[in-house]
Simulated scan of single mutants.
Amino acid sequence: MSLWLWATPLPQPFGVINVDKNAAYPKAIAELKAIGALSASVELRQVNYLVVLQKN
Score class of each variant (00 low, 15 high):
11 P>T: 12
35 I>T: 08
12 Q>M: 13
26 P>D: 09
1 M>G: 12
48 N>V: 03
2 S>H: 10
30 A>N: 13
47 V>Q: 11
6 W>I: 07
55 K>D: 06
13 P>I: 01
48 N>W: 00
47 V>F: 02
23 A>K: 09
46 Q>N: 01
5 L>W: 07
26 P>S: 09
30 A>D: 14
27 K>W: 09
8 T>W: 10
33 K>R: 15
48 N>H: 07
11 P>N: 11
11 P>M: 07
16 V>G: 00
40 A>D: 15
55 K>R: 10
30 A>F: 01
36 G>K: 05
52 V>I: 13
23 A>D: 06
22 N>V: 04
35 I>Y: 05
21 K>V: 07
30 A>R: 14
45 R>N: 10
6 W>F: 13
4 W>E: 14
39 S>M: 03
8 T>D: 13
26 P>G: 07
31 E>Q: 12
2 S>P: 14
20 D>M: 05
13 P>G: 14
18 N>T: 13
32 L>S: 00
46 Q>F: 01
55 K>G: 01
55 K>L: 09
8 T>C: 12
55 K>Y: 09
27 K>I: 05
14 F>I: 09
27 K>N: 06
17 I>K: 00
37 A>N: 04
54 Q>P: 00
52 V>C: 05
16 V>P: 02
33 K>T: 04
50 L>I: 04
14 F>Y: 15
41 S>P: 00
51 V>I: 12
39 S>N: 15
51 V>R: 07
33 K>M: 06
45 R>A: 07
54 Q>F: 11
42 V>H: 02
29 I>D: 01
36 G>L: 05
20 D>P: 01
21 K>Y: 08
54 Q>D: 03
54 Q>A: 08
12 Q>P: 01
8 T>A: 11
36 G>I: 06
30 A>H: 09
28 A>G: 02
15 G>S: 15
45 R>H: 14
2 S>N: 10
36 G>A: 07
21 K>C: 09
48 N>I: 00
20 D>G: 06
35 I>W: 03
52 V>Y: 02
6 W>T: 04
53 L>K: 05
31 E>T: 06
29 I>C: 02
41 S>D: 15
19 V>S: 03
7 A>C: 03
34 A>K: 15
9 P>E: 13
36 G>N: 05
42 V>C: 02
34 A>Q: 14
45 R>V: 03
55 K>W: 08
35 I>C: 12
48 N>C: 03
28 A>I: 11
13 P>N: 15
54 Q>W: 12
9 P>G: 10
